[in-house]
């Protein structure tokens, strides 16, 4: 299993290197799989973005796949808004999982070339409909999310980002659910259109709600991941694909994700 995984990553890396095609274009806007970055749309710009991702081979079973879809709009020079919805596919069936309203506030002037440190704050309200993480809790319990992101380096080139986030279920009767996340990633631009990225990500769950504790031991669910990804951009299109691998026996084995967007 480990040898097979190593071979597939090597193949992905070779494919990325072989496909280098120098061309004048900006690099991908979302360089990372799960870590938020600090780039946002300029005022008036619109993108349609989609993610396909999964949690595979979890402690509780085979896992689930997700489709995330959203229009994204540059509301002002500093604020980008998005309204994603998610569908989850699992052995239990396919259902509408959630709908979110989110705002990403870019705390810097995008045309300031000299700036090396950039900050972004993401605030989101997620209305859940049939979200698996809400199982055995009120199904429609909404969540609020906050991410504080800092990136260092050339935002359109090679840079690193730190994303510290939290997710709180708005259910205060009985058990609660709170998830603290940290993403740390570095992306390196290897050609005008291509980049390679290494990423670390963890989720620490608290509160006692069923999704936050392990069913047998009752321990809090702490998941740790790391993995690579490849990013591509040309003209109006960008894409990032890769996978995070579970670093502990209890973490999901793999979380693959494909993100892509088209500017309109």
């Amino acid at each position: 299993m480990h040898a097979r995984r190593s071979v597939s990553w090597l193949a992905l890396l070779v494919l990325a290197v072989v496909c280098l095609t120098p061309a004048a274009a900006h690099a991908g806007r979302r360089a990372f799989l799960f870590t938020w970055d600090t780039e946002a749309l300029n005022k008036g710009d619109v993108e349609i973005e989609q993610w396909l991702w999964g949690r595979i081979l979890t402690e509780n079973g085979p896992g689930a796949g997700w489709i995330w879809f959203s229009p994204i709009y540059g509301l002002t020079d500093h604020i980008e808004i998005a309204f994603p919805w998610e569908v989850v596919v699992s052995p239990a069936g396919t259902r509408l999982a959630d709908f979110t309203a989110e705002m990403r506030i870019r705390a810097y002037d995008v045309n300031d070339e000299e700036r090396l440190v950039r900050n972004l704050i993401r605030i989101a309200y997620q209305q859940n409909f049939s979200h698996p993480d809400n199982a055995q809790m009120m199904q429609f319990t909404p969540w609020v999310q906050l991410n504080v992101v800092t990136s260092i380096g050339d935002i359109k080139g090679s840079h690193g980002s730190l994303d510290v986030g939290g997710l709180l279920a708005l259910h205060f009767v009985g058990t609660m659910a709170f998830r603290q996340t940290v993403g740390l990633a570095y992306t390196h631009k290897i050609a005008d259109e291509w980049r390679l990225t290494a990423e670390y990500y963890h989720e620490l769950n608290f509160g006692g709600a069923p999704s936050t504790v392990r069913p047998v031991t009752g321990e809090n669910v702490y998941n740790f991941f790391a993995g690579p990804s490849v990013g591509f951009s040309r003209g109006r299109v960008w894409a990032t694909v890769g996978a995070l691998l579970g670093l502990t026996p209890a973490s999901p084995r793999i979380m693959p994700r494909l993100l892509f967007a088209i500017a309109i």
Binding site: N42, K43, G44, G74, V110, N111, E113
Partner: peptide, 23 residues
């Protein structure tokens, strides 16, 4: 998108004014 100074001022309307320094 010139290499010496790329920039994007976003959508502007009267009386918006945006400044760019060329280094």
């Amino acid at each position: 998108i010139s290499k010496a100074r790329a920039f994007d001022l976003g959508m502007t309307k009267k009386p918006d004014t945006k400044a760019i320094t060329f280094t």
